[in-house]
Design a protein around this nucleic acid. Structure first.
Lengths: 333, 333
DNA sequence: AGCCAAAATGATAGCGCAACCATTTTGACT
DNA sequence: AGTCAAAATGGTTGCGCTATCATTTTGGCT
């Protein structure tokens, strides 16, 4: 096997100059039909593939955007990723993806690594980056989008919704339905989960009638199984009094629902359940589960569009974009 | 904002030569403690980040591996991805991920694009690449792993398990349990699903006693909801005779299970259900669902390790690695 | 102290491509 | 045919880094 063909090899085969081959690949319009065809044939014949590193170095355009998500296993970020990938395609960009496992320190390292790829834009999840990470990002001069939640002082651009407000609203929903002994089931306890919990507490505190709350949280990562365990825990803590639970996500809610069957509790008569994120299963289980929906796919798409329209040097303050959320009321409440 | 600092800027600040800075970043062992510390301080002080394109160009090592999966929304590939990311970390590699949407043609384009990044290895899902794609891959000279299923003529390395055998086994499981009117519910109908179906048909054909089969498939992508619809369809086609269904994945199986409740069918008394992939929910729903488990995370990990130990120029035939599968028998059968 | 191999450091060149500017060709118009 | 602007093509250079080789420094030994 000879070494990989380069521009000059193609040029030789096609009988043109190297720069013409380069133009055929990046600006076909600038080349006459005749040469273009000749070059394209040569490219296909010898299986030439452009060296991205050299191209990026010479053009100062890497053609990649960097994305960091807190977890690959959480299906929520999958939806966002799909939006990102779908939006990226027409721009002919590649995505470099990092998983920071919910750790700002790991995220900081990842940011440094990914910045070395000279991305043309950066998409981050959440707003709790370390100080040094923010410095690196700002210094890079590229457009940046912080995703999922809203921030008072975004690094650059920001798109998401208020998890606090959503927490308040869903709790009020339970209160309006007449439930008075509310449990909060929380796993992982990342910033967004904490905001939902804060909303839960605020709604309870502001409620005009007497009511009770039980908060059960763990830093373990979320799973369906854990939802069942947390339901057990909250029933124990409330001595069986708890009549409604707000689960910080739909996995926990599903697990809690399955657990109610084993505990012989009727939903929503004995206990109401609501989740967060509105996964497909929540609508299809029996009884279906009330949840909070948000446009995750669209958030991902919009993040890419924001990056593409931003100049990067534009240091004006851009107001956060609130994509909102929607409480989907179902049989479980 | 000044332009981004480069090696020389760091060298100036640290009072050393550029090449020494380079060495601190890539071979710290080759540099004396004294200089190393000085350089590291300088790097941190001015927030220097190495230009990956230049580094890759000069060193002929890109530090990336390419991965193509058929779908971002299928949680199955998520598990594989997690394995890949976890294994890649200690090697200080980046992953460039592509989603080919189950299309070999899209995959071919993606392969060309990803090869331009000069990846040091390539992980593909399945074994149905186009002819030109295979040519490009072979010509690239890098190690290649085809994942998930086993092939008679892999491009290079291959790791997976036999979906045909799994289909045979799970069907025999149903037959042994006494079910005789078996339905197959299939969505997407990608190659692996087709192999499972072929296994289903083989088991039926080889069975010594009279039995009936009903095959309901669609090329729509899989979902829980679709599982319910397909169950309806198979019951219609079999005029209510069908007493067991093999769903080509657990999403369909969950949907079918939820649908049985609406149809007032008892599982497994009226109808047995089994799925494929052994998702978490399958073990926790009521009744729990029999499924086929495979080591997806480990497959991803092992694929990376294979890439790392392969020289790439080694053209000897490597035997496929069969990771096997396991039928997890549960209450639904 | 003197010697020498090993370790540390530095100078130079070139990786493959596209930006920039120079040159040639085209073709619309008088 | 002659003119000239626009389009097409090409030559040169440098992007920022590391491989390679050259040189200097170190330190263990006699």
């Amino acid at each position: 096997m000879n070494k990989k063909p380069n521009l000059k090899d193609v040029a030789k085969v096609a009988g043109v100059s190297a720069i013409t081959v380069s133009r055929v690949l990046s600006n076909p319009d600038k080349v006459s039909e005749k040469l273009r065809v000749k070059v394209e044939q040569a490219v296909h014949e010898i299986g030439y593939i452009r060296n991205h590193a050299a191209s990026a170095l010479a053009s100062r355009r890497s053609g990649v955007i960097a994305v960091i998500i807190p977890s690959l296993s959480n299906i929520v970020f999958n939806d966002v990723l799909q939006g990102i990938y779908s939006a990226v395609k027409p721009h002919h960009l590649q995505v470099i993806l990092g998983d920071c496992h919910y750790s700002p320190l790991e995220e900081e390292k990842l940011i440094a690594t990914l910045l070395s790829q000279s991305p043309e834009g950066f998409i981050l999840t959440g707003t709790d980056q370390t100080h040094y990470a923010r410095k690196l990002l700002q210094q890079s001069g590229i457009p940046i989008v912080q995703l999922m939640e809203l921030s008072d002082c975004p690094i650059d651009m920001n798109i998401g919704f208020s998890h606090f407000n959503a927490g308040v609203d869903i709790t009020n929903h339970l209160l309006q339905k007449g439930y008075r002994k509310l449990g909060f089931l929380g796993a992982r306890m990342d910033p967004r989960t904490q905001q939902r919990l804060a909303g839960f507490k605020k709604a309870i505190a502001d409620f005009k009638q007497p009511c009770q709350s039980y908060v059960v949280t763990t830093t373990q990562s979320s799973s369906i199984r854990l939802g069942g365990q947390l339901l057990q825990a909250v029933m124990a803590e409330s001595q069986g009094q708890c009549d409604a639970v707000f689960c910080c996500n739909d996995d926990l809610a599903l697990g809690a629902l399955f657990e109610t069957k084993r505990m012989n509790l009727k939903v929503p008569a004995d206990i109401a359940i609501c989740g967060f994120n509105d996964l497909e299963a929540s609508a299809l289980v029996e009884p279906s589960i009330t949840s909070v929906a948000s446009p995750r796919f669209e958030m991902g798409q919009q993040a890419v569009e924001l990056l593409m329209t931003a100049s990067g040097e534009d240091k004006t303050h851009k107001p956060p974009i609130d994509v909102g959320y929607r409480i989907v009321e179902r049989a479980s409440t």
